[in-house]
Amino acid sequence: MSKGILVDISLCIGCESCMEACRTANGLKPTSQRRLSPDNYVIVENLEGDVYYRHACMHCEHATCVSACPVAALEKTELGPVIWHAEKCMGCRYCLQACPFQIPTYEWHNPVPSVRKCTMCYDRIVAGGQPACTEACPTGAILFGEREDLIAEAQRRLREEPGKYVQHIYGVREVGGTSLLYISHVPFEKIPFLARNLSVQEPLPELTWRVLSKIPNLVGFGGVFLFGVYWIINRRIKLERMAKENQLEAKEDFIEELPPEQLDSEE
């Protein structure tokens, strides 16, 4: 079953306990930077006043990064987390280019660079635990569980306090669904990294698959077409020549240079 995290923006108090827990759990270096980076897997962003929201990998159901990676170094696991396999990666950075949430970061100053992003603490989940961040959150603003259960819980909250919440669960449909689900008391249009994909309902990998899936036909028909044209044109030429010289050419030679026999005799 696929796990997920429910983020309730109205409950986040901006204490950054999750960031601290993440740093410890993943052995990230302390940094003063306030943006996603190889040493920041998750950021608690301050939107306005006392509104804070979590900014990290969404662990998409049809992850764009996974579909983009040429060597399958990124993997959408059965359990939900999207993880990266160092030994496969060739560093093309198509995952950074393709991610609709601009999540993966790169070690630009490392001669053996890694793609770095939140892993939803995959190892801890495999071991039966939960991510360090959800464990650390003192208010329940981030909740770990089965994605299905979390959707039900979100629906319950929206139903019980209709005046408080925007009536939308972000992540059920967006970019084909994400393991991270957001509910909020401020409009999603205001939250930059979410707003950009509010209108994107279809999984983005579809856009490239539509073209990629045509390749076998293109090669098949293209090959037949090209050989066909070649055959027809050359047959005509052959016939013309046969008529002219009234003799059979044993073999056609389509190289413009002289054959080696003649080359030699010329010297």
């Binding site: 990666c89 560093g91 198509y94």
Partner: peptide
């Protein structure tokens, strides 16, 4: 980033990737 792995697409396949 890791040019020594440039040959990986030969054995590590992802036909869903344009790359």
């Amino acid at each position: 980033g890791r040019p020594w792995n440039i040959w990986h697409p030969i054995i590590m396949w992802n036909p869903h990737s344009v790359m």
